[in-house]
Every structure is written in structure tokens, then in C-alpha cells.
Design a protein around this nucleic acid. Structure first.
Lengths: 293, 293
DNA sequence: CTCGATCGATGCGCGTCTGGCATCGATCGA
DNA sequence: TCGATCGATGCCAGACGCGCATCGATCGAG
């Protein structure tokens, strides 16, 4: 069987065309080098070098083998280097799932921070609802997920990535658009765009709990999943809505955002979750990066 | 430093995800296999496999290294195979120089024969005059040359590749075009297209010797280098010419070829020449192939 | 809860292999 | 003709890799 040390020996001799100099380059003496070449020639069943006591020349087989040997050595070198980098968390690919709403503000900051900290790491991003992210995490098709709480699966671990207040989205021509702040009570019997109880369950429950606590009952005209769809209806003056603060970054013309005053403030939370048994160093890097954002 | 046996061990374990089965596949026992993996992990400074007594799984570094290891092993395998083939003269590249006239009939037959006998060998063909071939042979830019005699350089060896008679090229409307054969004496004081004494020296000297021997003096209208140029002038009824038999293959309309009767028949010879110190097995194959053509 | 089976890790001893030293044989130039 | 150069080879010591026996952890059966 072939052997890397034989390849290194051959390349050295083929480049130097001199056993003594090649041996010096390889930090060894000439006799074992001669033997390594002989072994390689036996393994390949081919004379690679034509040597007299005055000269060393490549044979046709040697000329054909030299670039291959150099290529193999170079590949091994870089593969080793890349693997070291991956193990140290400085290279590789992190497949990251995320919910649509996290892309408004948090995800871009995360991507920029990641690229600055770990320029050789590829982030493979996939938008999914939290329920799908759970499944993809467990099956190993993504390495980490930005999802809404609760993250309760026993095989998963999570860390809070973000917590932001809810704000009120108001049509620009609405009377409340001139208020500094809006209280929950203002929403009572107001036209209201709510979240779908199934497909946007986290937001739905959050908003519902907040309204129930205050005994407030807005007039729910629509139940939607996507925040940008909700804002589109707000802009059309169909009603008010409660959205995470990051939605302001969408810069929706005709919609203004007002702080919401509640008895007990609710925070919209986003968690990064990953499989407990995955020890990818990039996950550690990801979590470590969250503090700086 | 990396080692092929470590790569083979790692690939086996990574594919089996079981040390015992991998060891069986590698025809070894499990303990040294475990150690080889440990050494590889130390060399790469990376944990490649996460192992408990119940399961073996790849780490992120292992996942990134596995395809590289497989690729390196595959490359080594094919490089070894190709080199064996080259050494056996069944693969590789033969850079062959040839004179223009040999391309009329001999070279195509040679190429076809070569391809049939050695389908994995590439023939790199370059047309050159004999003088240039000599230079390229000595400098190693071609491996063999089809050239005109004499091949006298001490560093070169040669073998006769072809010997063919000279024939007379006659315009179709010429009185001699109806003869069965033509003797040298017929050429006396005839309009005649000759070879250039410098650029087509071999043909010039051959024809001159033949004419001198018979004391024949044709009326030389032109001296040219290329046989197809000479035939073009013959077609234009400017005169007769002596050309190698293979020139009939050019199928020049308006030119007929007649056997030439001489006292001492001259043969147009073509030699294959190569450097004495080159032991490329393809040269042997080339020379061996000449007999069958 | 215990016991046995499974599986990777480790201690140990032996055989082989590799590397270094000394030397040989061939070649070439002074 | 002699000495210098250079690759090949004989020989020996140290290291390395392999296999055997065994350990320790884990999990499932009873």
C-alpha cells in the first residue's frame, strides 16, 4: 500500500534530482531515503527514477506520477488544516433555521456579527415556522434554530437570543397616531388585526394573555400569520395590531408604532435551540455571539 | 504527519459507525484500530468521532474530514493505477514529431494502429522538418520523431519505419501519361519540378543522385519543398516530378503516377528516432508497432 | 435491581520495520 | 591513476504497530 512518507520522499527526490539534498530537505539521511524510493517503486510496480552514481532522472512513469503525488500531498495538507479549523470552530457550515419575524432585525445583525467573528464559517439559513424547525433539528437537517418558546423537547437545549417589547401598530391617519403611548384599555372594542391561533400560536397566546389580563376585548377583524401581512392591513386602516418592536424596521409607509402600556409588560422572546448531543463548536460560537448583539 | 492507513481506518469507521465491523473490514482487530483513530485525532488536533460504548457518531470536524479522506484515498488509488499503466507502456503520452510527407499515408496508419493497440495512450503529434525534429528530440520536447535519414547524432537511436519507391508524377494530358512505366532516361531535358536543395535536402539529394547516375539532365523549372506544392505544379502541366509512392494517396486530380524504372532502385526511407537515454516504454511500443504496418 | 452482553479503551509483549552508521561499487574529473 | 562524489547495501538498535487479554461503561433482559 501507498504511504505518505513515500510520496514525500519521492517528491523531494524528483524535485531535487539528488538523493543527498532531498534527504537533507526531509531531515533524514540518504540510505533510508533510497530504500523508501525502492519500496514505492515496488508498490507501484514501476521504475520512477533512473539513477546512476552521477545523475538522477525521472522516467516516464515518474513524470506522470510526480504531479499526482504533489497534488495528493497538497490535498492532505489542506484537508488537515480545514479540519483543524472546523474543530476549533473557525470554519465549517452552520445550518440555521429561523422564524420569519426574526429576520426583520435580529437575523441581519446575527449574520453580520458571525461574519465578522468567523469569516470562514458559512451560515446556511432556512426560514421555517417553529414547529418545522423542531422537526428539522431533531432529524439533524439543521444544526440550530431561532424559534419561539417554549422549547421543551428533552433532546434540545436552548438559550434566549432576544427579548423585545410589543408595540402598537397604528394607521397614520388614526386618532391614536398622535398619542405618545397607548394603553391596553385603548384597544377595547377597537378594530384589531390578530394572530392566527394555530399558525402563529406564540404571538396569538401572548396577545390573548395580555388582553385577558386587562379584560379588554377588541373587535378582531382578521387573524393572520405573517407580521408584514398584518401591517399591510393596518396601513389600509382596517385596525390596530400588536407587533414586536423589530417590526418597525420594516419601514411600512402609513403605519406608526407606539409604545404599549400594560400592567405586566410582555416580552416577545426568541430562543436559539440545538440538540443536546451535538457538540459542534459553531453552536458554542453562535451562543457566545448572542451576548454581543 | 498524516498517514494513509489512518485515513483508511477513519473512513472505515466513519462508514460503519462501529469499530468492530470496521476492523473486520480492514482485516485487523479492534484495538489497533482504536489507536489509529486516536493518533489521527491527535495529528489533526480534532475530535473526529464521538464514541460511547453504545454508539459511534461523527463530529462536525469528522463530517468535514470524511469526504476529503475518501477523495485522497481515491486519488492515491487511481494515481497508483495510472502509474502502473504508464510504466507498462499501456498509458501515457507520446509526443511524436513527423515530417509533412509521412502524414500522407504512413502517419494515419500508425495512429490507427497505436490506438488499437494502446487505447489509453495519447499521441501528441507535431509536424516539423527533420532538422527541427532533431533539436526538439535532443531538448526533450518530443519523445520520438519520424524523420528522414541520415540519423547520425550519437545521442539518438533509430529504426527504419518505412521504405517506399519513387514514382513519376505526370500531368494527365502529358504524352507519357499513357506509358505503363517511365525510365529515368525519359526525364532527360524534360520540364521538371525539383526539390529545394536546402529545405528538402533529403529528397533533393535522392533525386539528384538518381539522375546523376543515369547522366540525365531534366530542365528544372522550379525547386520546391512541399510535395503537394510540387504536385500542384505538375497538375498545371509545368513538368514532371519524382515523388514517394505515398503521394498517390493525396488523390490529386489531373496527375497520374507511373512506376519509375532505374538501374539501381532508390527507396524513400523514413526513420523513427529517439534519445538513446530515454527508456519510455511507449517508444518500444512504437517501434514494435512498425513491423505490423 | 442484578446480571450478562456489547463495545470501545488500555496494558502488555512480540515481531517487524525504519532510520542511522559504516561501507561498497560505479563513475567522472584532475 | 587517484580521489571525490553519489547512490546502494549490510547491519544494528530503537520504535512502532499489531494481537491478546482485560477493563470500564452502558444497556437490556429477567
Amino acid at each position: 500500500m501507498l504511504d505518505f512518507s513515500q510520496l514525500r520522499c519521492f517528491v523531494a527526490v524528483a524535485e531535487e534530482l539528488h538523493f543527498g539534498r532531498a534527504a537533507a530537505r526531509l531531515n533524514m539521511t540518504q540510505p533510508p531515503l533510497s530504500r523508501q524510493i525502492q519500496v514505492l517503486e515496488r508498490v507501484l510496480d514501476a521504475a520512477l527514477l533512473e539513477r546512476t552514481s552521477r545523475s538522477v532522472r525521472l522516467t516516464a512513469a515518474g513524470r506522470s506520477f510526480l504531479p499526482e503525488a504533489q497534488r495528493i500531498l497538497r490535498l492532505a495538507e489542506t484537508a488537515a488544516h480545514v479540519t483543524r479549523q472546523v474543530a476549533a470552530g473557525r470554519a465549517g457550515t452552520l445550518r440555521l433555521g429561523f422564524t420569519a419575524a426574526s429576520a426583520y432585525d435580529f437575523l441581519p445583525r446575527l449574520v453580520i456579527g458571525f461574519r465578522n467573528a468567523l469569516p470562514d464559517v458559512t451560515l446556511a439559513l432556512r426560514e421555517m415556522v417553529s414547529r418545522d424547525q423542531l422537526e428539522e433539528l431533531l432529524s439533524g437537517r439543521i444544526d440550530a434554530a431561532l424559534m419561539r418558546p417554549p422549547v421543551t423537547h428533552p433532546d434540545l437545549v436552548c438559550a434566549r437570543a432576544l427579548a423585545e417589547p410589543l408595540v402598537v401598530a397604528v394607521p397614520a391617519d388614526h386618532p391614536l397616531a398622535r398619542s405618545e403611548v397607548i394603553t391596553v384599555r385603548h384597544l377595547h372594542e377597537m378594530p384589531f388585526i390578530d394572530y392566527a391561533p394555530h399558525d402563529a400560536r406564540y404571538f396569538h397566546d401572548l396577545v390573548q394573555g395580555l388582553l385577558d389580563e386587562a379584560g379588554v376585548r377588541p373587535r378582531v377583524l382578521q387573524q393572520l400569520t405573517q407580521i408584514h401581512s398584518i401591517l399591510a392591513l393596518v396601513r389600509a386602516s382596517l385596525g390596530l395590531a400588536l407587533v414586536p418592536e423589530a417590526a418597525e424596521r420594516l419601514r411600512f409607509e402609513g403605519v406608526v408604532f407606539k409604545p404599549l402600556v400594560t400592567m405586566r409588560p410582555r416580552l416577545v422572546e426568541l430562543y436559539v435551540a440545538w440538540r443536546r448531543d451535538r457538540d459542534d463548536p459553531l453552536i458554542g460560537a453562535l451562543v457566545g455571539l448572542l451576548d454581543g448583539l
